[in-house]
Design a protein around this nucleic acid. Structure first.
Lengths: 228, 228
DNA sequence: AATTCCGGAGAACAGTTGTTAACTGCATGG
DNA sequence: CCATGCAGTTAACAACTGTTCTCCGGAATT
């Protein structure tokens, strides 16, 4: 099997990595649709034409970045959702997991949030596809949870999508909190505060959704309260 | 009062409008950070330098677009949230209102979704500010709703933010549904189907949130079910 | 050991970009 | 009616873009 890959392909993948990393760095201050091919190669210290040996265009590179940012996340999400324990504990663990992920890979998170609705169609498509996979997997995990016993698959999927979107919203908030501490002199003091604020907010939002989930099958007339 | 504005300023606002409209059109296929000043003026049929008579930069134009897209939406949202009636009816009305707004102003919706996390900081800021105002107003409206009686302001605001984010997610889905019917031969048949699908999805998600809302104060141990 | 393969370099292309300066014509206010 | 103000024009600038073609050197294959 893995026969150490040869000096040739090793170097190739090395500059490929350099291109991806440089692009990700440059994308902190702009969107993909304005990222120039030359800009990337210049940052790496390589000739513009070398770019074509790895990607057809910057859009192509963007799709590769999507794979890198979301592709390896599927097992993590699966195990997080289908973990056992008290409802409160599971929420706390999920929120903490999101916060840690944003801390570890802020550029990836920013890239996904930015390009999900960005100006490059193939990239939007790639993100949509990955998120749909997430929703499908969360939906499957919900099927094995007694709280969702008796739910139709349609309902499980609508909740799964709610969870996935909520995850993205929360990740984006954590990212903003991270950046709030990088604003000149504001210092890591405010960053900590903001992080705590987002944690509390996301936790309570997930809690409310969880409550709605537990009473979903109480019956259409079982809510006992008319609104106003 | 309004003394017919003079021929001079009338013409100025006319080209200003043309610039804004042309930019909005061009932004359907790219993001603001890649929108060129010359590109806009060329689309209008005006000299590049004329741009400076109206905006300092394309970022400036973007901020103006944010105002235009969200500024006039505050009264609509306020009345929608604090409308009376059955919970189901209110949800249906809200979803329909979102769908109609996307139909009427698709370019505005796409712009906001795209630039909310886009590469131009002042525009992100402007959007964040408007959405925060929305959340605040929804929070106030919730205070006058008996369903949220006894809620802390903090809790009202966390629900309001959940509603606002959910509104944006739903609007974005309706926009995708709209575009699904513009893909070559797919025809308005699929568009209608997709629109119905999104309507059903958003309705049930709001329903679940509403259920969670009604049971929010049932007490921390009142959920009667342990999760797995 | 000789030959093929291929990642990267170099130079050149036509076209684009934002910004400056000095101008023109016309509605406006005195 | 004349002088001012100002939206829009014209021309030019240096810098940048994506893409093509030709070439080089060294690893990979035979």
């Amino acid at each position: 099997m893995s026969h150490t890959l040869g000096v040739r392909q090793a170097q190739k993948q090395k500059t490929r990595r350099a291109l991806l990393d440089a692009a990700l760095g440059l994308l902190e201050g702009q969107s993909l649709s304005s990222l120039g091919l030359r800009e990337v190669t210049r940052a790496v210290g390589v000739a513009p034409t070398a770019f074509y040996r790895h990607f057809r265009s910057t859009a192509d590179l963007g799709v590769a970045l999507v794979e890198e940012a979301l592709g390896s996340l599927h097992p993590t999400i699966r195990t997080t959702v289908s973990t056992t324990g008290d409802s409160e504990e599971r929420i706390a663990r999920a929120v903490e997991l999101i916060a840690d992920h944003v801390d570890a890979h802020p550029a990836h998170v920013r890239f996904i949030a930015r390009e999900r609705h960005g100006g490059v169609q193939p990239v939007r498509e790639a993100i949509r596809e990955q998120l749909a996979r997430f929703a499908g997997e969360v939906g499957e995990a919900l099927a094995e949870d007694p709280v969702s016993a008796g739910w139709s698959e349609d309902d499980r999927l609508m909740l799964a999508q709610l969870y996935v979107d909520q995850m993205l919203v929360t990740a984006s908030l954590f990212l903003e909190a991270l950046e709030a501490g990088t604003e000149a002199e504001a210092g890591p003091r405010k960053r900590e505060q903001e992080r705590e604020r987002v944690t509390r907010l996301a936790t309570r939002q997930l809690r409310l959704i969880g409550i709605g989930r537990r009473h979903w099958l109480d019956g259409p007339a079982g809510d006992g309260l008319a609104a106003s």
